[in-house]
Design a protein around this nucleic acid. Structure first.
Length: 116
DNA sequence: GCGGTGACTGACA
DNA sequence: CTGTCAGCCACCG
């Protein structure tokens, strides 16, 4: 039947990543959780490493600490920081401004654009 | 089946 | 604040 049959898992994860609004960022674990796959943060990372979708906002995905997942100075690192800044996201020393905590009203649990 | 590796996470010193 | 350790899942030789 369909020659193009992607795994529903990957589809969910990709959908969760695409669901991140511009100027906001999310963590691997959060994306995984949003995709219905708690504890599969590594799976999300693996998907991104093998992603071939240029329209995928992979640069909005960070570690749980709000840190860039790439080693500082790496190609992907600079590229990610560059894109984030281009969206108005404040990146300092390879780290994104972390909000104190959400009151819970933010169901998406996404880190909004940090404003000074 | 096993050990090593990775765009991870949380806990602890 | 940084660094280390163990747990975790998926892939590879």
């Amino acid at each position: 039947m369909d020659a193009v049959s992607a795994d529903p898992i990957a589809e969910r994860i990709l959908a969760a990543i695409r669901a991140v609004p511009r100027g906001a960022v999310a963590g691997y674990g959060q994306i995984a959780r949003r995709a219905g796959l708690p504890g599969r943060a590594r799976l999300v990372a693996r998907l991104l490493s093998g992603n071939d979708d240029p329209a995928l906002p992979w640069h909005r995905i960070l570690r749980s600490d709000g840190r860039i997942a790439f080693p500082a100075g790496s190609r992907g690192f600079r590229e990610q920081v560059r894109r984030l800044r281009a969206e108005g996201v404040v990146v300092d020393k390879g780290r994104v401004r972390m909000p104190p905590a959400t009151d819970g009203d933010l169901d998406a649990a996404l880190w909004g654009p940090a404003r000074d």
